[in-house]
Design a protein around this nucleic acid. Sequence first.
DNA 1: CTGTTAGCGCGTTCAA
DNA 2: TTGAACGCGCTAACAG
Lengths: 352, 352
Amino acid sequence: MAVTLADVAARARVSAATVSRVLSGNYPVAESTRTRVLRAVDELEYVVNGPASALAAATSDLVGVLVNDIADPFFGIMAGAVQAEMGAPAGEPGRGAEKLAVICNTGGSPERELNYLTLLQRQRAAAVVLTGGAVEHPDHAAAVATKASRLAASGTRVVLCGRPPIADATTLTFDNRGGARRLTEHLLTLGHRRIGYVAGPAERTTTRHRLEGHRAALSAAKVNSLDTDMERLTVHGLYDRASGYDATLELLRRDRGLTAIVAANDTIALGVCAALRDQGLRIPEDVSVAGFDDLPFSADAVPALTTMRLPLHEAGARAGRLALGREPQPPGGVAMVRAELMARASTAPPRG
Amino acid sequence: MAVTLADVAARARVSAATVSRVLSGNYPVAESTRTRVLRAVDELEYVVNGPASALAAATSDLVGVLVNDIADPFFGIMAGAVQAEMGAPAGEPGRGAEKLAVICNTGGSPERELNYLTLLQRQRAAAVVLTGGAVEHPDHAAAVATKASRLAASGTRVVLCGRPPIADATTLTFDNRGGARRLTEHLLTLGHRRIGYVAGPAERTTTRHRLEGHRAALSAAKVNSLDTDMERLTVHGLYDRASGYDATLELLRRDRGLTAIVAANDTIALGVCAALRDQGLRIPEDVSVAGFDDLPFSADAVPALTTMRLPLHEAGARAGRLALGREPQPPGGVAMVRAELMARASTAPPRG
DNA sequence: CTGTTAGCGCGTTCAA
DNA sequence: TTGAACGCGCTAACAG
């Protein structure tokens, strides 16, 4: 049916082995036969059979990238950066080095995450990059750790980007706790004492770390009149705008006197802003708002959103290089990516 | 090294073929042996070797999804929807039907698009979904058409989602022209006569069709005082916010008296709004603004953005089903997806 | 219902 | 520098 190595070999009047050597490039071949083979490849429009090649070589050129929600730019940016590193170089197709980065959308579901890992294991993927926060169910965490070990054992490199380290995987953690703490400190410094918090889904590492950082800042600030009723001033939701909107209404119901609201990420923050506006509250005059991530739209929001910038593109690119083994492991296999405060117009001192 | 079918067969005291039959499920097997095999699979933690399976069966379970920019929700939404259709059902791994949808980010580059198509052809992908506007270079268009035919010929289903039809591919086109026309008509009806247009990159089908629709509306409106100097009132840029910002400054330089600006998509429209605000112009009092796509953030913008809604999720899902052959072909292999006007707060009658 | 027998297309020995 | 031969792990006939 399709053109095979043997066809090319016949046309070039060499053996299949020689064609294979020419194409993989890692073996000396006479220049004359080399050009002859390449011409035959061209004329026949030969395309390597990936599965056959993977079977014989016991490795494939697939690299899996798992994301929680591909429609969310937070993941889109990282995934795009990983994929860009795989760089199918502009060279003619049929050559060697390009890897195929495949982005897999788990939707945040533990089952689908495991399913994809199995699928990738089945494909004998060269590497797997897990991005974003992990789900914290003990069973699931154990299952993922087991799968990761098994992948690593079978030669698949495992890289984590934006989640806590596990055995057998190189990890790029995000400093969610420290970043969240500095963000809330910023608000405290401005003079805020009653600060609401809109958290993400409860069972996610990212959610927990950011919330912990926030609370650490509050606990550390032994200032007068600080409202430390943290439970009452915290509402959980999803990492989306609608949750931010609803949570804000709930927060205002619980305490109309809030002077600031911190959101677990920028997308939620957008919903917070919308809700505040609908309630007739001005930002930042009546209520300050802060987010996390610094997604592209955050600088454009009105008012521009104060947030913690995470270098998502750089982190994704680095994860990609680690997955390819193009970059040395960080010491201990773990590196922390810092967050940077972007103080913008959505936060200001409380009035009065 | 790894556990193979033969190992499982030995442990279950059956032949390899029987194990294969149990796992693929499409063949009658006695219940007793069936459970025995599954137990062995479980005990040995056997995972099918994808490449070997693909080689023997001459098909793989990969489905490629090509996008121009995965960090852009326009593509993220479609890609996520396609992938959701592949649904790795919650069943145990090792089963049959799940396909692995792999999202490939071309960055809008023709070379990378072709490269990915080759890579997918090499993998003997079950299907390929091409999303978003196509690049219009004749050479490139021909190259893509050729690749598509070749893929189709080798049994890979090719589906287009959001671009013009080509031979051998099932197509879901977006009604960019009609949508753009209705949008500009909306502005004309409100009374606008001097309307700026911020277009996308010149060589893209989406760009051209939306611009044509806009101009068709202007040409058809034989109203007095309509400024029909279309060239002067059109600025091209990329599909991003920065381009919208810059283009707006340029448009204002060319004609300070514009009462409305139409952007080729919502992301650009955001930049337009930012630039107008920075110029001290109010929306919609001084200048109306309209976008295209109706991405999630558009309803939240301040003011809420008037735009044409494209059912991206539905379209992606349908493309996914077509790719799997789960949905009948539309008549002629081509179906058009309509755009719907979402008239919101960013457009109003011009003053005076 | 199950086992046996051939390949699928390629990489990689080992000789020449 | 090149060719011949074998096997990667699995599926798909064909028998039984």
